[in-house]
């Protein structure tokens, strides 16, 4: 392990350590995605004062009910590891709260108080329930729900430092898993590389042009399938929806002459497919069998995605991994994601050279030795298999 400053042994944080504390309560806040330190401080203070108000109200209520002896605090064991933070009831050892460490946004300590800020899950469809805009917020900036847990302990500072250390140990593991040696690269240095990387925004420009977004009416016979194969656009894509990968000869989709392979389907008969899992999109399309008219909203896209990665030096890892020519993982916020790399895509070309028949080792070699501008062409792996006849299309 790289030495990570803090009160614990990094090895102990992997197994997990326990601190005794009193759980005072939890509250929810709305927050922008990456708030400034000052805003975080205000959020922590707001959480503490809300929970203290709740405590006071509970005490008054208890007094009124003359349950003077009833405790207003819950004694807990705070379990901290590089994977999770759990809050266990000290008496029963029952888990009251359990958060994956990566979902913890930050930790605050003030005197004997510790505040844990965790991001709440937002459904993929970004429902209004979990994502809101604050009226009057500049340019309607998105607000995310956070849950704030407040604790009291003599060891408040030690608890906060231990969680901070767990953050660092887990982050170094994450960097290492993405091929970055934390010893070679300070976080500051990597942030600098990221900030010099332009967001590859051809996708965004393409999607925002109204001439690329079309509403189509397709005629079909009752009982006839639409005659399409759809695949996922791939994690990391700007528009997470299905892509038309193949059309059945003589089927309604092909007959219309209005669709092309590569088109992204955004809605079917008014039902949005954006953000839905592939299986759900497929069943929505299958559900059209008895219809005679189908309304599709599509974005015309070429079947091949263009990627541009700017890598100033070999010491900066690309931030994605490849297996047999297929991109299988992507580092969130890394230079590859910014450059347009999508999980599940097959690499077709690197710097103008076709790599479809190139051995895996050669592809890795070409990528690992490339610096400056790296141009790639990719397409969803499933679409590539269909187009090259390696897979038989199952039309729906």
């Amino acid at each position: 392990f790289v030495a990570v400053p803090g009160p614990c042994e990094p090895e102990d944080l992997i197994d997990g350590i326990i601190f005794a504390a009193n759980y005072l309560g939890s509250t929810q806040l709305l927050s922008e995605r990456n708030p400034s330190k000052n805003i975080r401080m205000m959020q922590a203070q707001e959480a503490v004062s809300r929970v203290k108000r709740m405590q006071k109200a509970a005490k008054i209520k208890k007094k009124a009910n003359s349950e003077v002896d009833a405790p207003t605090l819950t004694e807990v064991d705070l379990f901290i590891s590089t994977q999770r933070i759990k809050v266990l009831n000290a008496d029963t050892q029952e888990a009251m709260l359990d958060h994956a460490l990566r979902t913890i946004s930050y930790i605050a300590d003030i005197g004997s108080i510790v505040v844990l800020m965790a991001r709440r899950r937002m459904p993929r469809a970004a429902s209004q329930d979990c994502i809101e805009t604050t009226p009057g917020a500049p340019d309607g900036r998105k607000q995310y729900k956070m849950v704030c847990h407040v604790f009291e302990s003599e060891d408040a500072q030690l608890i906060a430092q231990s969680i901070g250390q767990a953050f660092s140990v887990a982050y170094q593991e994450f960097l290492r898993a993405n091929g970055i040696n934390p010893e070679d690269l300070s976080q500051k240095e990597y942030s600098d590389v990221i900030s010099t990387q332009e967001m590859y925004n051809d996708d965004l420009v393409h999607f925002s042009k109204s001439e690329n977004c079309k509403e189509l009416q397709l005629e079909k016979h009752k009982g006839e399938i639409l005659g399409v194969v759809v695949v996922e656009s791939g994690w990391g894509s700007i528009l997470p929806t299905v892509i038309l990968a193949n059309m059945m000869n003589g089927g309604p989709a092909a007959r219309s002459g209005k669709l092309s392979i590569g088109d992204q389907i955004t809605s079917v008969n008014g039902t949005s497919l954006v953000g839905l899992p592939l299986a759900t999109c497929q069943s929505i399309i299958k559900g059209l069998k008895q219809q005679t008219q189908v309304k599709l909203n599509i974005v015309s896209c070429p079947p091949v995605t263009t990627v541009l990665i700017k890598r100033p030096d070999l010491k900066y890892q690309l931030g994605f991994s490849v297996q047999n020519g297929i991109i299988c993982s992507l580092m969130r916020g890394g230079i590859a994601e910014r450059g347009g790399v999508r999980v599940g895509h097959r690499i077709i070309e690197i710097n103008g050279q076709s790599v479809v028949a190139t051995a895996h080792e050669k592809i890795v070699q070409a990528l690992s030795s490339s610096v400056g501008e790296i141009h790639m062409k990719t397409m969803p792996a499933a679409m590539f298999r269909l187009l090259t006849g390696q897979e038989t299309p199952l039309y729906i």
Partner: peptide, 21 residues
Amino acid sequence: SALTITVNPMEKHEAPGRGED
């Protein structure tokens, strides 16, 4: 007493809206 904030460096790599109930 002073208020100390320690931000999780993983935060910037997480997709917006990813979290837990």
